[in-house]
Each structure stands twice: as C-alpha cells, then as structure tokens.
C-alpha cells in the first residue's frame, strides 16, 4: 500500500485497554432491506476500552452493522444494547444513545454553512446544554488534539479532505462520547491525506476509547485492533486477534479476501 502503511507499522501494536465491562452487546441481530437479508444473526460484544476493526468486501454489511449501533438504520430482529440501554422504539433512548456514541463517516458530513468552530460547538451547546464559552474552550481543546486549531474560523469547504475528516473526528469527540464508530474514515481521501487521519485515530485509541472501525487499511488494523472481524454477505465469518487473523486466517473466504488486498 502507500506511505501510511509504513508509518503505522513503525509505531508497533498498541497495548490493549480493554476491560471486562461490556459496553455494546448485540444478540442474534437481523436486518433486511426490503426482501434482501443484509445482516444475519449477528452476535457481537464490545468491552469498554476495546478496539474492534471490521473488514470485508463491499456489500458485506459492515457499514450497515455499525450504522445499526447508533440507530441510523433500523434492525428488525434481535437486541442491541448500548451502554446498558436497549435500542428500540423509545425515542428518548435513541437520543441518549446518539449522544454517547460518536460516529465518523466516509464523507465527513460536516455542516458546510457553519464554521469549523460552529460545527464543533453546535452539539455541546444545544444537546449537552454547555455554555457558549465552555463549548468553545472544549472545541479548541479537541481541535488542538487533531492539530488544526488555526482553521477554527474557516468553513469546511475551505479545508482539505484530511483536515475535514479530522474536524469530523473532533466534532464527535466534543460530545465526549463513550464509544466511537468509524465508517471507512479514509476511503474518500487522497493517499497523502490518509496518514494524518490514521495518526489522529491511533492517538485516540491510545487514550483508551472504545472503538469500532470499518476500514480497508490493514496495517492500521494491525496497529490498533484488539480483535479483527471479517464479514461476508451479512455474516460474521471470522473473528480473531490481529496477528493470528492476518498470519493465519482460518476461513477460505478470509484467505481469499486477504490475498486480494494485501
């Protein structure tokens, strides 16, 4: 792959921060798009501080899975319990879960009509009811963490893709979530910008954040993952700790997938 691979490899593997406390539990979850069975009998647990990387060919349902966790998509069968709260019909629960679960998208989804600072303070002010001054201080703190405090007064359209994605990460962090979901955060970026985003994510992982990451960056997966999950056609096909997963894949489909992308 590109430079990013080399960069992340040199950092070596991060030590695990996983505890015994379960923060996400998914039981026999099924989802259909019309007649199409997208997710089949998914079982998954995420412990506090644990980092899971999900990979698989496109159309395998990995994005849909993490979008179900913060209820951007509805599932039809099974239970999803996030931070002790069952995801269901109750809208109050839904709003609560969304404030505890941060999400970063492939296309950033920043608000183009607001400045970077306004993007970062919108949630804290109106959802977390922070005072404006506190929200700005909070936002500047996270902008420094993603290393672009000088861009605070610009609009998203004036930033590069990598910078926008780092802003998106900071925007999620401003809500002080307990879990971060990443949906292919580097897929829409030029190769030279992938590294800056991955570096921010590695730093975040280092602070003990619980994370689920859908990505094709395998070197990155090796660096941060406590567990790697391989999905194909709506099933979780294989699950293992990273070294074993990459060096000794068990399932035929995993072997085929890894041979194609490595």
């Amino acid at each position: 792959m590109t430079d990013s691979t080399a960069a992340t490899q040199t950092q070596g593997q991060l030590s695990s921060a996983a505890s015994n406390e379960i923060i996400i539990e998914i039981n026999k979850m099924n989802k259909w798009y019309g007649d199409f069975h997208v997710l089949r009998d998914i079982d998954l647990t995420l412990h506090k501080g644990e980092r899971i990387v999900i990979c698989g060919p496109s159309g395998s349902g990995k994005s849909t899975l993490i979008r179900c966790i913060n209820a951007l998509e509805e599932h039809q069968e099974g239970d999803i319990v996030v931070d002790g709260i069952l995801l269901g019909e109750n809208l109050k629960n839904l709003d609560h879960i969304r404030t505890e679960v941060g999400m970063v998208f492939q296309n950033f989804n920043l608000f183009p009509h607001l400045t970077i600072l306004e993007n970062l303070t919108l949630g804290p002010i109106w959802v977390r009811k922070m005072s404006k001054a506190d929200a700005i201080e909070n936002a500047m703190h996270y902008l420094k963490r993603v290393k672009i405090p000088e861009q605070a007064d610009k609009y998203p359209g004036q930033l590069s893709g990598g910078q926008q994605q780092r802003v998106a990460i900071a925007r999620s962090l401003c809500m002080s979530p307990k879990i971060m979901l990443f949906d292919e955060p580097t897929s829409a970026l030029d190769p030279e910008m992938i590294k800056e985003v991955l570096d921010v994510m590695i730093e975040l992982a280092d602070t003990g954040m619980s994370m689920i990451v859908v990505t094709h960056e395998m070197a990155f997966a090796k660096t941060i993952a406590d567990r790697v999950i391989f999905m194909d056609e709506g099933d979780i096909v294989e699950e293992n700790e990273p070294n074993a997963f990459f060096e000794n894949p068990q399932h035929q489909r995993t072997q085929l997938f890894l041979s194609q992308i490595l």
Binding site: V101, N109, L110, G123, W126, R128
Partner: peptide
C-alpha cells in the same frame, strides 16, 4: 446523519 450523530433531535 451528521446532525443525528451529535444528538440533535
């Protein structure tokens, strides 16, 4: 989706 993920109703 971006608005939902920062908890806006």
């Amino acid at each position: 989706e971006g608005a939902h993920t920062i908890g806006l109703g």
